[in-house]
């Protein structure tokens, strides 16, 4: 599904990612753990196609297609979705208008007919119910005045609505209480049950306990220094990262 080779990325001429190699096959869930500033969010934004993040070397392939230079919208249309750590607030644009525009952009790209308002409403209501969100969520401006938990759920709502092939969850678990964490974890499990691939970026292993990823990677100073299974995540939770940096 996703194949990243020797990826080097700079922000304002400072190298953040220093040669990432990562392969996530179809249907697998991988997790990347690391301290603040290790480059995790840089990887998420680079995969999303954010132009602020300059790829200086390396390649990103998705299902054999080179997407390294692809625009953000084309990456999305090809099936990449990032749940952002800090999604922007956009006053004046309702979630319903935004999401329906996004869904219809995907359908148009696939040569399909637009989703009508009623179908969109029915689909949205079903997903909102699973996330324990009220239908009025659709009328609210995107992330405007949302609590931390609502922002995370909003991202999961969009994920389940657009149903991409590959999702990156950038610290979607941070700032969530235990009930919200379970709801988000159930959302991710539902997504992954559809043979999609997922990359979970996190500080903590508590979300991973719910989701049980296939592979856990540790990122330190822009590089993946170790990969393993859930045991590795538990070791990090217990011992921290220092022993891996040596």
């Amino acid at each position: 599904m996703i194949d990243i080779k020797n990826l080097k990325v700079s922000v304002e001429e400072k190298e953040i990612l220093k040669g990432i190699n990562l392969e996530i096959p179809e249907g697998e869930v991988h997790a990347i753990m690391g301290r603040n500033g290790s480059g995790k969010s840089t990887l998420a934004n680079t995969l999303a196609g954010n132009e602020k993040f300059e790829v200086t070397d390396g390649l990103i392939h998705m299902n054999g297609l080179d997407i390294t230079e692809m625009s953000a919208e084309n990456r999305s249309l090809n099936g990449i979705f990032v749940c952002f750590q800090y999604p922007v607030a956009i006053p004046g644009v309702s979630m319903a208008y935004f999401l329906r525009a996004a869904i219809n952009a995907h359908l148009e790209n696939q040569g399909k007919e637009e989703m009508d308002a009623l179908e969109f409403l029915n689909q949205s209501k079903e997903i909102l119910k699973k996330l324990n969100l009220d239908d009025s969520f659709l009328k609210r401006s995107i992330n405007d005045g949302f609590s931390g938990g609502e922002k995370k759920k909003s991202e999961i709502f969009q994920l389940l609505s657009l149903n991409p092939k590959f999702a990156i969850l950038d610290e979607t678990d941070s700032g969530l209480d235990i009930d919200a964490l379970k709801i988000v974890a159930d959302g991710v499990k539902e997504f992954n049950g559809k043979k999609n691939s997922t990359l979970i970026i996190t500080h903590y292993e508590r979300l991973l306990e719910y989701i049980n990823p296939d592979v856990v990677h540790i990122m330190i100073d822009g590089k993946i220094v170790k990969s393993g299974d859930m045991k590795l995540a538990r070791q990090v939770e217990e011992k921290g990262y220092s022993w891996l940096a040596k």
């Binding site: 919208e73 999305s76 922007v88 956009i90």
Partner: peptide, 12 residues
Amino acid sequence: NSIFYFQSRGIN
């Protein structure tokens, strides 16, 4: 950042 957010969801 707002424009990028739209693009990241497939909107040109």
